[in-house]
């Protein structure tokens, strides 16, 4: 059953019929299992991987920044309450507790550099117990969540071979 989740993670448009054929199960079995996963929140939702540079052009695409945040932990909650507060902003795409020089690593998107900078200055760094931030703007995306953003390698095979 784990195979079905891995396949959907690669291509969520696969039909239950195709999934059933691929894994040697009945369609009913696959549908019931996928339904159960959706209900239990194992499958949280389905979405597309979009290369926005191809849509908007490199100059007008949204900007993304990785922001490292140093936080003073608090008794009883550690970093969780601050992470939770940061997570609530729609501009924040991901929040991780990490080891190393800082405590949280966040991904923030905005329409331009100014918008992201303003967000960091006005919202993020003013949260209680946030001590410092370090902002790294993304200049180019090469690979994201396992998907390479460069052109696929051409097929060099001859059309018919023994």
């Amino acid at each position: 059953m784990r195979e079905i989740l891995e396949l959907l993670e690669q291509d969520s448009t696969l039909s239950h019929e195709t999934l059933a054929t691929m894994t040697g199960r009945s369609v009913a079995e696959v549908s019931a299992q996928v339904g159960a996963w959706e209900k239990a929140g194992v499958i949280r939702r389905y979405k597309a991987v979009v290369d926005w540079e191809k849509v908007d052009g490199a100059d007008s695409a949204e900007v993304t920044a990785f922001i490292d945040v140093a936080v003073t932990p608090a008794r009883g909650v550690g970093f969780d309450d601050v992470a939770e507060r940061i997570s609530r902003f729609a501009e924040v795409r991901s929040v991780y507790l990490v080891s190393g020089g800082h405590d949280l690593r966040c991904t923030v998107t905005g329409s331009n550099i100014r918008a992201v900078s303003d967000f960091v200055a006005r919202k993020l760094s003013t949260i209680d117990r946030v001590q410092a931030t370090a902002t790294h703007f993304v200049l180019k995306t090469h690979k994201q969540d396992g998907d390479s953003f460069s052109d696929p390698e051409p097929d060099h095979r001859l059309p018919v071979t023994p």
């Binding site: 095979r157 001859l158 059309p159 018919v160 071979t161 023994p162």
Partner: peptide
């Protein structure tokens, strides 16, 4: 196989199920 290679190589938009690799 050679003869089919020659025909297929001249065509465009071929979906090849003839490849042994």
């Amino acid at each position: 196989i050679r003869r089919f290679f020659d025909i297929a190589a001249e065509m465009e938009d071929v979906i090849s199920l003839g490849v042994g690799e």
